[in-house]
Design a protein around this nucleic acid. Structure first.
Length: 280
DNA sequence: ACCCAGGACTGAT
DNA sequence: ATCAGTCATGGG
């Protein structure tokens, strides 16, 4: 199957720290998952080629966020010259729609980890606890599987201190102490507080889950890369990095209701420009 | 060996 | 409310 796209980059979208089940092979094909279907993707020019058992391109268009136009959504904020610089360098990036549970697990695993390590942990969780798929690979394990595996077993996969967090959060989901439907009536700020009740989820990870797992474009996760680029561009005077609260207020004022989408482009730009790698 | 990574949590001011 | 210390692991 083929999808024709405009101003889209598969490499940027799958490599920008949103989803962690995708690996790019030496042949140029990305291998990963759309829900429970293994899937391979390759981009040539404006064409994305799909190899999978899916009978329609619709789930892929939905997953990759190809149904919205970030240039149009961010248009009101692109007068700001620095955001425009970052956006123009990353305009092929789309905000993906990750399954919320896998997204939650990925980001619980993400604390003090590099993106490559998060991918490794995602692969380990699938291989060890997921169901094998006839076409190869393993589906992502549900909360019950991860809970029943036990903390020690999770630790043996390399999760470190995150093993206890993931185990306890899985238990909370199994016991319905957390249900994603609780979030839908809540504004994003209160939804973040709800997520923060779960072990291993603080403000930053809560907002990643809301942005990538629940498509809350007004969630603005602040990690070290965002802190660096925001300091460099919007807090140039100070010696130290600005606080998360300062950055949040600034993002609200600069990027409005769609600051989460702006964050996707800022994060990817910061991470792919050598200028921002832990300087000052 | 050393440094850092898409942080969260705890206990002390 | 802010702040330092602690927590595991792997790659550069």
């Amino acid at each position: 199957m083929l999808i024709n796209t405009t101003d889209f980059s598969l490499d940027d979208t799958l490599g920008a720290g949103q989803a962690f089940c995708w690996i790019k092979g030496d042949n140029g094909w990305w291998s990963g998952w759309i829900e429970k279907s293994p899937c391979q993707l390759q981009q040539k020019g404006s064409i994305v080629e799909i190899r999978s058992t899916l009978d329609s391109t619709r789930p892929l268009i939905h997953y990759l966020g190809l149904d919205d136009d970030p240039r149009q959504i961010l248009a009101p904020y692109l007068d700001e010259p620095r955001l425009r610089e970052a956006f123009n360098a990353t305009s092929g990036l789309r905000c993906v729609r990750e399954p919320w549970w896998e997204c939650m697990c990925n980001f619980i695993c993400s604390s003090l980890k590099q993106i490559i390590h998060i991918r490794q942990l995602n692969a380990a969780l699938r291989r060890q606890l997921g169901d094998p798929h006839p076409d190869g690979g393993h589906t992502f394990p549900d909360a019950k599987k991860i809970f029943q595996a036990g903390e020690a077993s999770l630790r043996s996969l390399g999760l470190g201190y995150r093993a206890k967090f993931l185990h306890q959060t899985a238990q909370a989901v199994v016991e319905s102490r957390f249900n994603p439907e609780q979030l839908s009536p809540l504004p994003t700020g209160e939804a973040a507080l709800c997520l923060r009740a779960l072990p291993g989820i603080g403000d930053k990870i809560a907002k990643c889950i809301l942005l990538y797992g629940f498509r809350r474009f007004d969630a603005f996760p602040v990690d070290v890369w965002i802190a660096r680029i925001m300091k460099e561009w919007y807090f140039p005077r100070g010696r130290k990095l600005p606080t998360a609260k300062q950055i949040d207020r600034k993002s609200r004022r600069l990027f409005g209701q769609h600051r989460g989408l702006a964050q996707c482009h800022l994060f990817h730009y910061a991470r792919t420009q050598a200028v921002f790698s832990k300087k000052s």
